[in-house]
């Protein structure tokens, strides 16, 4: 053995040096390099940071009381220096409301995705790992949920959970209890695609030899799922969760737009649009600014997710 190694080393000294001149890059650096090449994704990232700064940094300049302060005499004022985005139907400042509405919309997006991702991973992992009856039952359930159009499901669920949760006080601010309801129902109606992705990943990864080895050494099923398979299927999960935030923000907007979502005075970008179609002609600023902010946020997240997919999960490119 020793002699063979020396022989190889002597016969190919140059090759080794050449190879080592460019040391292998760590995975994160590689992913970052690929991500940087994606110009639209970088732009999306920058825009998203700006939007987060707008919603969360904005609260340093404007108080929430001001955003919820009704002043009927100045209702439906056109944009001016004092109210750059105008005022709404009860005289609240639209600019201040887009700031606080943005916070709630983004928080709803993130928390809903946490529920969605947990559910998706749980169901996908159980179905993919155990197979058999569990798999077919869970997948029939997933398929059934997928077949009911999401908006109908959201509306029915919003009705089902109703407005039974009282207002919450957190960090000195009061939130309408409907925020929690919306987060839960968005999470409950959007996990199906992720569950399918996770299941497919689990199906293929569990056939690998290292899983066989783990089983042979007596590793428990839970540990195999969490420590051995899940880390290997994390890339599509991250991509799907990122894009999921955009979808959750959209779902909140749809359901609040239909008047079944977050209840005022808590503002969200969605409920600011509720009833706006009565003011298309007379007060376009009512719906234009929140609508534009939703569009920009969703667009940025979609670009970001697209770049992220190219960077960390290049195999699953769909379109």
């Amino acid at each position: 053995m020793g002699i063979l190694n020396i022989m190889i080393a002597e016969s190919t000294p140059n090759l080794f040096v050449d190879d080592l001149e460019t040391p292998p890059l760590p995975l994160t650096t590689l992913a970052w390099k690929r991500f940087k090449r994606h110009r639209m994704a970088m732009l999306g990232g920058v825009f998203l940071i700006l939007l987060v700064l707008y919603s969360f940094g904005g609260s340093l300049f404007v108080e929430e009381k001001y955003a919820n302060f009704t002043n009927p005499p100045i209702r439906l004022n056109t944009p001016s220096w004092q109210h750059p985005f105008g005022t709404d139907t009860v005289g609240r400042d639209v600019l201040a409301r887009t700031i606080y509405g943005g916070q709630i919309s983004m928080i709803i997006g993130i928390l809903a995705v946490i529920i969605e991702t947990s559910l998706g991973i749980l169901i996908g992992a159980l179905a993919g790992y155990y197979g058999g009856t569990i798999d077919s039952l869970l997948m029939r359930f997933t398929e059934a949920m997928l077949n009911i159009p999401e908006i109908f499901l959201l509306i029915v669920m919003a009705k089902f959970f109703g407005n039974k949760i009282p207002n919450l006080t957190l960090l000195g601010r009061t939130f309408s209890g409907s925020v929690v309801v919306i987060i839960v129902i968005i999470g409950l109606t959007s996990w199906m695609y992720l569950a399918r992705i996770v299941r497919a990943e689990f199906l293929s990864i569990k056939e690998n030899d290292f899983i066989l080895a783990a089983k042979a050494t007596g590793t428990s099923n839970t540990e195999i799922i969490i420590r051995h398979i899940l880390p290997n299927s994390i890339a599509p999960i991250i991509v799907s969760a990122t894009l999921g935030i955009a979808n959750a923000i959209l779902s909140e907007a749809y359901i609040s737009f239909l008047g079944l979502g977050v209840q005022p005075p808590t503002a969200t970008w969605g409920n600011m649009l509720d009833g706006a179609n009565n003011y298309i002609e007379s007060a376009p600023w009512l719906w234009f600014f929140p609508g534009l902010l939703i569009l920009l946020t969703v667009l940025s997240i979609n670009f970001l997710g697209d770049g992220l997919r190219d960077a960390i999960d290049p195999h699953s490119r769909a379109i």
């Binding site: 737009f257 719906w287 234009f288 939703i294 569009l295």
Partner: peptide
């Protein structure tokens, strides 16, 4: 990325 209601209103 357009929400349907925004397309409609616009």
């Amino acid at each position: 990325s357009m929400p349907i209601f925004f397309i409609a209103l616009l």
